[in-house]
Each structure stands twice: as structure tokens, then as C-alpha cells.
Computed example of a mutant assay.
Amino acid sequence: MEANRFEGKVVIVTGGGSGIGAAAVHRFGREGATVIAAGRTEAKLTVTAADAPAGSTVVTRVVDVADESAITALVTETAETYGRLDVLVNNAGTATSGTVEETGTAAWRSILAVNLDGVFFASRTALPHLRRVGGSIVNVGSISGLGGDWGLAAYNAAKGGLVNLTNAMALDHGHEGVRVNAVHPGLTRTPMAVPLTENEDLIAAYRKRIPMRRPAEPAEVADVIVFLASSDARFVNGVHIPVDGGLTASNGQPRLF
């Protein structure tokens, strides 16, 4: 039987309508938290809430994290309504392929707005509330922030920025009792990754590179998110955990033997 590590605690998960975000909502809910599942699409959030484990408390809120006033209002409203905020999971993300030459200004701005600006807006608003209870922030990055990809210039820039924003917040706020950490998924079976996970040639190529020979399931990433947010990780601050089946353990050379 799982412990209710989050009984009486309040958690916000952005991008909570599908994939890793929905899995995190469910895991926090199963452990007793009141979970605010935030996202841009009401229909997806409704499914997340309907699929939550029995007895969970999941509240859905439609919000675009790139909208400073909207995400600020959501965080403030949550803390005021429930009297506290214990965990912020910055999970919302988006990606568009393209080199620097191929990426238009609007696409560049959009990717940075969701993947990086939204984290800044939400975290800045959440910090005073997290400070009061000794809470934590978990940022959902990507192995694309730990190293470059071909043809993902804007996404690499945004997720790379998230890595060092995580470091800066961990340094600035650790002494205040607020821990800030990040998980960095590799290929995961999410709706955003369907073009990859349903391409047999690409999956075959990934299996040659991932030591565990498969993509992650969203729940496998969510489990690490919840660990970092929990008291089990109470002295863990400023860490970056790849959840990639061992992909980043490689130095990049092809298999020699």
C-alpha cells in the first residue's frame, strides 16, 4: 500500500491534460494531495479528472501558462482558496521542428513562451506561498535540454534555458526551504510524441540507442516527479534526473562491440 505522502497538501501541475502531466496528477492524487490540473484544453483536463484514482481530489483549470496574467491568477487563486501551496510542477511544453534558419519568429516566441516563460511566471508567483510551507518546484525538462538534437533549435534552446533556470532557483531559494529540481524525460509515449512512437523505423533506431530498448511510459516519469516533490527527497535540491532508460549514459559513440 502506498503512503499518503501528500495528505493535506496542495499541488499544481501544468500541462495536466495528457501524457506526463496527467500521470503526475493521478500519482499525486493517489497519495492524498488536492491536485490542480491546469492546461489549455478543457476536454483533455476533463478526461484527466475522470480517470483519476478513486478518492482523488482533482480540480481542473483552463489556463495558458504563456499568458502571464492568467497563470499568475491561477497560482494566486489556488493558494488563497486552499490556504496553501506545497508543490508546483512546471510540466507544460510544446515543440516544433526546425533549424535556426527554418524557424520563424512566431514559432520561436511560442516555444520559448510555453517552455520557459511559463515556468518563470508560475514559479515567481508560487515562491512566496511555497516558502511558507517549505514546498518545492519540479520542472519537467527534456534530454533535449541536456544535449542538442538535429532540427530542434528552438526546443533545445528553451529546454536548455530551463536547466539553468532550475539551477538558479535552487541556489537562490534553497536556504529559504524551497527545493527546486528537474526531471528530463527521453522518448516517452505521450500524445506529443505520437509521430515518433508510431513510426516503426524511428522506434527501431531508438531501440538501438536506449539501453532499456523502449520508450518510457508517462507514469514512469511521474513517479520521479512525485519523488522529487516528496519528503523522501527533502535534501535533494538543484538536481537533474534523466528519465531516459540510460540513453544519456552514452558518450555518443556508436556501439563498437
Rank of each mutant, 00 (worst) to 15 (best):
G98C: 01
L116V: 13
V133R: 01
T96E: 03
A107K: 01
L130K: 02
N139F: 12
L88Q: 09
D117K: 11
A126V: 13
A70L: 10
L130R: 06
S69W: 02
N91W: 08
N91R: 11
Y82L: 08
I111P: 03
V89R: 07
T99C: 13
L127H: 07
T72I: 03
L112F: 10
G104H: 03
V133T: 07
G93T: 00
F120A: 00
T103C: 01
L112P: 05
V100C: 10
D117W: 08
I71C: 01
T94H: 02
T125G: 06
G141M: 10
P128E: 04
R124Y: 12
F121S: 12
E80G: 05
T94N: 01
G104N: 03
L88E: 04
R132M: 06
D86I: 11
G93R: 08
S69P: 01
A73M: 00
V133G: 05
L85F: 09
P128K: 08
L127W: 10
A70V: 07
R132A: 14
L85D: 11
E68Q: 15
A92E: 12
R131H: 14
E77W: 03
R124E: 14
V87G: 06
G145I: 00
T125H: 03
E80F: 04
A95I: 12
S97A: 15
H129F: 14
V119G: 06
A106R: 06
F121P: 12
V100K: 02
L74N: 00
T105W: 11
D86A: 05
W108S: 13
E80Q: 15
T103N: 02
E77C: 05
G83H: 11
I71W: 08
S110C: 02
T81A: 15
D67Q: 10
T96P: 00
H129L: 09
Y82W: 15
P128G: 08
G141V: 13
V114Y: 01
N139Y: 11
G98W: 12
V119M: 09
I71V: 15
D86R: 07
N115Q: 08
L130W: 01
S110P: 03
Y82K: 06
T105I: 14
A73P: 00
N139D: 05
R124D: 07
N91K: 06
V89L: 05
W108F: 12
S110Y: 09
L74D: 11
E77T: 14
E77M: 04
F121I: 12
G83S: 10
W108G: 01
A107S: 13
T125D: 05
A107E: 15
N91I: 08
V89D: 05
R124M: 13
S136H: 02
L85E: 06
L130S: 03
A126R: 07
A92V: 08
